[in-house]
Design a protein around this nucleic acid. Sequence first.
DNA 1: CAATTCATATGACGTTGTCATATAAATTGT
DNA 2: ACAATTTATATGACAACGTCATATGAATTG
Lengths: 167, 167
Amino acid sequence: MTLREVGARAGVSRGAPYGHFENKEHLLTQLAINAWSELADEVGKLRADAGAPAQVRLEQAILTFIGVARRRPHRYALMFSTPADTPAAAEAAGRLEKEFFTLVADVVGESDAQRYFALLMSSAHGIAGLELSGHLSKETWGVGVDQLVRMLVDAIRPGVREADPSD
Amino acid sequence: MTLREVGARAGVSRGAPYGHFENKEHLLTQLAINAWSELADEVGKLRADAGAPAQVRLEQAILTFIGVARRRPHRYALMFSTPADTPAAAEAAGRLEKEFFTLVADVVGESDAQRYFALLMSSAHGIAGLELSGHLSKETWGVGVDQLVRMLVDAIRPGVREADPSD
DNA sequence: CAATTCATATGACGTTGTCATATAAATTGT
DNA sequence: ACAATTTATATGACAACGTCATATGAATTG
């Protein structure tokens, strides 16, 4: 994304944003913060909706997360290319993580939540990243995004063997 | 990475690479192919070494994969930012995937290998990506890369409950 | 040794991020 | 209502970038 593009969309010249942002990176960081924040709100709504069982809500939350990568790949890339030590960005990302953590805790319980949350977050990010880069082609890998997410949630669900024949 | 940097390291001017590569993207694609290829060789050696049990070899292979992200972040980013439909790149990436697939099959058996391979590859990529972007800080997440990899391999290992007290 | 190919240098072009300066619009104080 | 100040934008400049056309020297070949 070029600053000319940012400007063109607002009908404004190339240097105009510098009255509002210190430099390009700060501008992009703000966009990343918005992305984290909006996603946190979306997942938060999903979590608060008590209509569905915990596993289903978790699965939907993960798909919402990956959905950003599918529908707005640049936005998704932005979220993870902004330096993670920017306080405002860390806060917004933390809000999303907290939502996910709660969701995971609803499935596996508080005691195991931390570990499984980390694994699940990483895996979701990986699925999104592979899909984003085009390295996850259903033909050669045999599975798609949705199937992987289901496997992931199933693997985390306690008390049930993954290859349980009752599935 | 700028072409001036490429040139400077070779003691050569900015436009010199254009005698050998059509444009910058083609040059970077070649670097990505080298990265995929070398990593495939490394993992291949690990796989062929029958000294360790399958789970350990798989775990080491994943850590080797993630090791690229940790030790050579630009190289790792390059591997996944190059268009996946470039034939030579797809071939080199396919070689690495085949090595991993064999390793996974050694652990879970041929029948389940495909699905678990895809999940494992995605998760490994996600762990690497989070580590790379700085979003996986041990303080807030409570776990590090090595612990996540161990959880991942354990979760895939058949016939053993993840939270087995004998661990 | 002449002819040809190959690798590189040089200089130009348009574009980018950035900044200093100028100017117009909006806000404020009286 | 008007002067003073703040705010938002435009303009033009700069260096660095990817790219290319051209030229030159080094290798290779006959």
